[in-house]
Design a protein around this nucleic acid. Structure first.
Lengths: 198, 198
DNA sequence: ATTATCTATAGATCTATAGATAATGC
DNA sequence: ATTATCTATAGATCTATAGATAATGC
């Protein structure tokens, strides 16, 4: 009890990190503050010295859950395995991603709940979406930026929808079919390879 | 108090119908049984003579929320305005649909929450997804059924993802851009018009 | 002295059940 | 007699706050 300020900052990050994972796994209403604080090795009373309200935590935790592609691209630049849109598609629509929402895309795990959240959460989400559109558009070959952006928006929409559906159905074969089909169609269609069209 | 069996069946349908709308609007955990029964003009006590548990209601209400395209197509056959995939795309990605989740697609409103629901809800959802894939595949022109099915799966994925994102962002311009872009790309790309490719 | 965290709890939920009441239906 | 619905409530949550405790940091 009674720690330093540096310690508090670390504690804050730990709470956000755990919440960010748990929200994606169990939904924005899937657990209470007591359960969260316990997992962080703390008790419920300390929570409100870190956040004004539960919604405050939601905004911060959801926001921190975004940026996977950005981190993936940065890692690639500093020596990780190289990225291409085809690669990001394969990773996004993998069974690993499907079965591990806690460390995956916040959108496929939470989009409808974010839509019902307060202004701050949705505002932060808007920025992240804009960032992802830009990131994918930059990675796409295209005649012009406008075309690249359109394709990026279609690809991201298809990814989010396909993963959401693959998780919602209980039939494993159907789930795999969704992942596999969208993976292949996106990679081979004229949408991501415009050259093939001309 | 104390009504006929026919009356009870009607009451049951009314509860399911209201719940189906409210789930899509407020999420699967967005309201309690007391609130629901009050909206149906009843009190909380009667609920468990209609459903074994809350999850039972979820399964039934979510299932009844599907089938929009089927009803749309049936209506068209019996004299309504004609359907085509292009038309369904325009309707699905309209601002009207975006702003009225209660009467819209259960998938874009609930997919991640369905993914966390019990077996029965997910099993019923699987069947509905299969039905929708078939329905759209049938409406698509294609060399063979396999190609049509692949395209149907891509289109539906893109629709669900685009609408989910359009609802989640707070920036109206960005939201409209998502709807408009996916609408146009899906309608014009080789994905839905294979002839253009050959 | 300030503050990060703790214990304890108020007040508002929510699901589910028990038992009463007023109809239906044999 | 059966049953569809009602009133009332038990027991388990959950968010947020008050006040105590044990550190930090001037």
């Amino acid at each position: 009890m009674g720690h330093s300020r540096a310690e508090k900052a670390k504690t804050h990050k730990r709470i956000v990190s755990i919440a960010s994972k748990k929200f994606r796994e169990k939904g924005l209403a899937g657990f209470g503050i007591a359960e969260l604080m316990k997992e962080a090795g703390l008790t419920v009373g300390g929570f409100y010295k870190h956040f004004d309200s539960r919604d405050d935590l939601v905004a911060e935790a959801v926001n921190s859950a975004f940026g996977g592609w950005q981190r993936r691209t940065d890692a690639s630049k500093s020596g990780g395995s190289p990225v291409s849109v085809a690669r990001l598609i394969d990773e996004y629509l993998s069974e690993t991603h499907r079965d591990n929402p806690g460390s995956g895309c916040a959108f496929s795990a939470l989009a409808p709940e974010i839509a019902r959240s307060d202004k701050r959460t949705r505002s932060l989400t808007s920025e992240q979406v804009r960032r992802d559109f830009q990131l994918i558009a930059t990675l796409l070959p295209a005649r012009d930026r406008r075309t690249a952006r359109s394709r990026a928006i279609l690809i991201i929409s298809a990814l989010v929808g396909a993963l959401s559906m693959a998780r919602a159905v209980s039939d494993e074969a159907l789930s795999r079919e969704i992942l596999g089909t969208v993976r292949e169609v996106l990679k081979h269609s004229a949408v991501s390879h415009p050259e093939a069209k001309a």
